[in-house]
Write a protein that binds this DNA or RNA. Structure first.
Lengths: 239, 239
DNA sequence: AAGAATTTTGACCAGTTGGAAAAATGTTAG
DNA sequence: CTAACATTTTTCCAACTGGTCAAAATTCTT
């Protein structure tokens, strides 16, 4: 008897096992995970897309599987065939997110010039706020709830990366190339100001009004933030 | 027959009418709203407190009446006696919030000196992030969801206030007392940087670690933000 | 084309949700 | 004290929740 595939005469059971096998593969190391079919990849993508819509708008608890299934254009049981639990969908979204989310900071190069590096970091973050607002909101939602599902990732991966980049900033300060200030709070303020344009988009648009709240607002924000981080509010005459 | 009180022999109906009367008082202008009893005021406060806990953590959809009732230490129907619907509680919280939330900006005085005024505005906002993090999160949650329940307030009250203060800032710029920059985005950046310490508190604490993530973080943030808005990152040697 | 595997569907379920109704219990002004 | 009112509890409900299951439909492999 080949113990590899564990085929069963009951198709459903086999399908379910497939999922569990994929999950357990790392620990069991016996069953081959069997690569995903084309349909599986496609449908999973559709589901994740829909879930991003819903989770980013209502948070984990406020989102329902039915809603996600509806947006994804499939029945609830069908959705649950691909992701056996709600949490699984969320976990996937979050962990994929964290990687792309931190990419801009990762790119900040210790060997580059401080101001161009910081400037393009701000720019990249702002572009992400513009191009991936749902991702930003998903992240914000998770934070607001105390990050129950990603606290370890925050405490380890995120912290390590920030520690590393804070050290880079400190070096630049030691070399007198940027003003001496708190590198951690500097990073926080870049996060806060850029993500604000995704997370509080409604407010920004409402306050700017129809005349200035159009797509140009991101260009205005970029210009403003650049000046803020470069010179602050001290007038030119006194600089 | 006195049309004032509309007493009914059914006590429940009378009690319910009381609520509706209070709500309709403005439009009907006929029935006296009848002042709240001591117990009503106390219980409503307890409920609003509990609701703030729950709503700020889970958002409107993610929060349940049962949960709020439990935190408030009363039964669900009892809670519903004071606030006949979930939305009512939320609406009350939000509208009360908006007043106190904008107070610091309101205090920014056109006749004062620009830098002290801006500095103490930042300080006050940061103190609110420290002392009322739940309020901040409630607001953030609402924004993330597109502010469905307060969009008019944002578009009218908030916008008007910001327009007014932006004009003040512009005047200061015209007088050369602060650097010329976008006053709206300046206000956005103050909001973003200060509220970050309430809304993303978990992240801030996790990244700073146990050594620097204690209560002192708000003092550090205040110092950092003051420098940022004053001078930006330009080193002293080049200022 | 047939058999095996995968995908989709429909019926179902137990627990939770927001809320209604009414009865039971307190409180208070006259 | 007692009637009128205010508050609380008990019971109930229909809709929704996350999730299961077996059968049916489809797709893939040979």
């Amino acid at each position: 008897m080949p113990p590899i595939k564990l085929k069963s005469s009951v198709p459903t059971a086999a399908a379910k096992r497939q999922h569990k096998a994929a999950a357990k593969a790392a620990t069991q190391a016996k069953e081959k995970p069997r690569p995903l079919t084309r349909i599986q990849r496609e449908k999973q993508d559709i589901i994740l897309e829909a879930a991003l819509d819903v989770f980013s708008l209502h948070g984990f608890r406020g989102a329902t599987i039915d809603q996600i299934a509806e947006v994804a254009g499939m029945s609830k049981p069908n959705l649950l065939y691909y992701f056996p639990r709600k949490e699984e969908i969320h976990r996937r979204l979050i962990s994929e997110l964290l990687v792309t989310w931190l990419a801009p900071l990762r790119e900040m190069d210790a060997d580059g010039d401080p101001f161009p590096e910081i400037r393009s970091y701000i720019r990249r973050k702002l572009e992400m706020a513009r191009d991936f607002p749902r991702e930003s909101r998903l992240f914000a939602n998770e934070m607001l709830q105390g990050a129950p599902r990603i606290i370890e990732m925050i405490e380890v991966d995120l912290k390590n990366l920030v520690d590393e980049k804070a050290a880079v900033l400190t070096t630049w300060m030691d070399q007198g190339r940027i003003a001496r200030t708190d590198p951690y709070h500097l990073i926080f303020s870049i996060w806060a100001t850029t993500q604000h344009y995704a997370d509080f988009d409604v407010q920004v648009r409402a306050v700017l009004g129809p005349s200035r709240g159009g797509e140009g607002r991101f260009e205005d924000a970029a210009r403003y933030l650049e000046q803020l981080f470069l010179y602050g509010l001290t007038p030119r005459s006194k600089r």
